Amino acid sequence: ILHDWDDASCVRILQNCRAQLAKGGRIAVIDLLVGEVGQPGLAPLMDMNMLGMTGGRERQNAEFDALFTAAGLRRVKTTSAGAFVVIETQPTT
């Protein structure tokens, strides 16, 4: 879902998810992860597609971390799942 949206909308989505978490709960984000410029793969192609079709985009780890921080979350684990990654977050407080 996050790749469909601009940064401000992503923060709002994550804040709403955070508000509904039970104590000790986590949020999992499953998405493509953009690597370094020029790194081949599906993510750069999907990045162009998302920009053209929805105004969203694929993101790098640092960009996800900025969204999580703005939403009061922090990344605790990233797991590879084929072409995708599963990013686990939890509230900072």
Rank of each mutant, 00 (worst) to 15 (best):
E63G: 11
N16I: 02
L33D: 10
E36G: 03
G82K: 01
G24P: 03
C17T: 10
R75P: 03
A19T: 04
T69I: 10
V34A: 15
N49R: 13
G72R: 00
G38I: 04
K23Q: 08
F68S: 08
R18W: 00
V76K: 07
T79H: 01
V34C: 12
V11F: 02
G35A: 10
F64Q: 06
A71C: 14
I27V: 15
R12Q: 09
Q90I: 00
V85M: 00
L67M: 11
M48W: 10
W5S: 05
Q90T: 13
A70P: 08
A22N: 06
Q60T: 15
G72D: 03
D65C: 04
N16F: 05
N61E: 14
D65Y: 01
A62R: 15
G56F: 12
Q90K: 13
E63N: 02
G25Q: 14
G41Q: 00
I1S: 13
D6K: 14
R26Y: 13
T79D: 07
A8L: 05
G72A: 02
E36Y: 08
P91I: 01
R57N: 07
A71D: 07
E63W: 08
R57E: 09
A81F: 11
R12H: 04
E58A: 08
V34S: 14
E63K: 05
L2N: 05
A70W: 02
R74C: 12
I1K: 07
D65A: 04
F84D: 09
H3Q: 06
Q39F: 03
T93G: 08
A66Y: 03
V86A: 14
H3T: 12
R74A: 11
Q60G: 07
M53E: 13
Q90G: 05
L67T: 00
A43I: 08
G35K: 06
M53W: 10
I13T: 11
G55K: 11
A8F: 01
T79W: 01
I30R: 13
A83N: 03
T78R: 08
D31L: 09
T89G: 00
L14F: 03
P40R: 01
N16T: 06
M46G: 04
H3I: 00
G41H: 02
G72W: 00
G52F: 13
R74K: 14
F68C: 12
T69R: 15
V34L: 15
A43M: 12
T92P: 01
F68N: 10
P40V: 03
I87S: 10
N61F: 15
I13H: 09
N61C: 14
G72S: 02
A62Y: 15
L42G: 01
V11I: 12
R26D: 12
E36K: 10
Q90H: 05
R18S: 08
N16R: 15
S9P: 06
D65N: 06
T79F: 01
A8E: 09
V29G: 07
L33C: 02
F84L: 09
T92H: 09
C17K: 03
D6A: 15
D6F: 06
E36M: 13
G38N: 07
R74T: 10
G25A: 12
A70F: 03
M50E: 13
P40T: 03
T79L: 11
L2Y: 03
M53H: 08
M50T: 12
G72M: 01
T54A: 14
G25P: 09
R57H: 14
T69A: 15
L2W: 00
T78E: 11
C10I: 11
I87D: 06
